[in-house]
Amino acid sequence: MVKPIATAASGRYRLAVFSRVMAALVGGYTLTALVTACLALSLSLSRVESALTATLPAFLVLCMAVIWVFAARSAWRAWYGLMIPCLILGGCYLWLSGGGA
């Protein structure tokens, strides 16, 4: 299905597209998971309220991440733009889950 575009484009372009698709898939989903996890751990609501509040915005986060990935000027920028918040949130997650234990 990629044919019509791919024939008109170089291998380099294809690689960049593949890189972005992976960034959207892996990076976007990881970011979504981390946002959800940090919200779930940091909200001081009743259990059911925390779980729901943390999960309801997940698909918005993922959608924004994907739009970012395909709007970024280069594939590298797309990756950086996801990795930095992922690292910060990953740190938060470790701190939150460590503090809770």
Partner: peptide, 9 residues
């Protein structure tokens, strides 16, 4: 699809 909210709580 996004089980972590419920799993962590």
């Amino acid at each position: 699809y996004v089980p972590w909210g419920i799993d962590l709580v």
